[in-house]
Simulated assay, not measured.
Amino acid sequence: MAIRMGQAAIDFAKGQVTNPTPPPGESDWFGWCLVFVRRCFNVGPMYGSAEKGYFGTDFKHGTSGTPPLGVPIWWTNGGDGHVAISTGDGNCYSTDIKRRGKVDKVAISYITRTWGQKYRGWSEDINGVRIYRPGQVVPPLPAVDLSNVIDAARRDQFRPQGQGLHEHDVLIVEKALRHQGLKKAEFVDGYAGTEFRTAYAIFQKATVPPPFDGIPGLASLTKLGKRNGFRVVS
């Protein structure tokens, strides 16, 4: 599982404002703040509430100063508590605060003032995974060449299975489609044939205007990258 850090985690959070992907079986993010934030970092489950998640962190920072970009920020209330993700400018992305079950960008102080919970500051870790170190250099996101993926989507269907063009770029896109629930593991093979185009067309229908032809465009591939931790170059 590739951990998202820094701007990549923020990009995922921002995407949830307009294109939410709540937990399976749920219609929105209501009551799922810890799941939302850990999914921003692509971190697995551990605790049953944000309050337990806060007390389980090992690298806590207090409430002085502004939390850096891309870290979890915590509140406790003797119950479930709350967690959000800092944008580094005194704001954060949070569930439920402006719209029930939705994600919005708000001031950290607004949550403290509105909900009356005790603001605890921020941590470098969440659910046992350290996602931030002061002074760290966050590695760049993997790059996908748009022209390579378009070329493969147009030509691989006419090539033998297993001999796809631009396998490196196609594999990154296929793994993202699998993460979106649109591809099975056995079809993640670097080959952008009919099955690839069918899966990608479904993603297009959910995110961009027509055509839904399964050939990636800049808008759709950028959206897929923001949700799954890669950047698009052309």
Score class of each variant (00 low, 15 high):
L34M: 12
V35W: 15
V35A: 13
F36D: 03
R38D: 02
F41R: 06
F41S: 01
V43I: 14
V43P: 09
G44I: 04
P45V: 02
Y47S: 03
G48Q: 12
S49E: 05
S49Y: 05
E51G: 01
E51Q: 13
K52D: 14
G56I: 11
D58W: 13
D58V: 12
H61S: 13
H61E: 11
G62I: 07
T63H: 03
G65R: 05
P67M: 12
L69I: 09
G70I: 08
V71G: 02
P72G: 09
W74E: 10
W74T: 07
W75Y: 13
T76C: 00
N77I: 01
N77V: 03
G78S: 00
H82G: 07
I85C: 09
I85S: 09
T87H: 04
T87R: 10
T87V: 11
G88P: 12
G88H: 09
D89S: 10
G90Y: 13
N91Y: 12
S94C: 15
T95Q: 11
T95S: 13
D96L: 12
D96Q: 12
D96A: 13
K98Q: 14
K98T: 10
G101R: 07
G101T: 06
G101A: 09
V103T: 06
V103H: 06
V103P: 07
V103L: 04
A107K: 14
A107M: 04
Y110W: 14
Y110K: 12
T112Q: 15
T112D: 13
T112W: 04
T114Y: 13
G116A: 05
G116V: 09
G116Q: 02
G121W: 11
G121V: 08
G121E: 11
W122G: 10
W122D: 09
S123R: 09
E124C: 14
E124Q: 15
I126G: 03
I126N: 06
N127S: 15
G128K: 07
G128A: 04
R130M: 10
I131C: 04
I131N: 06
R133Y: 10
R133H: 08
Q136T: 00
V138K: 08
V138N: 12
L141R: 15
A143L: 14
V144P: 10
L146P: 01
S147V: 00
S147E: 01
V149T: 02
V149W: 03
V149C: 02
D151R: 08
D151A: 08
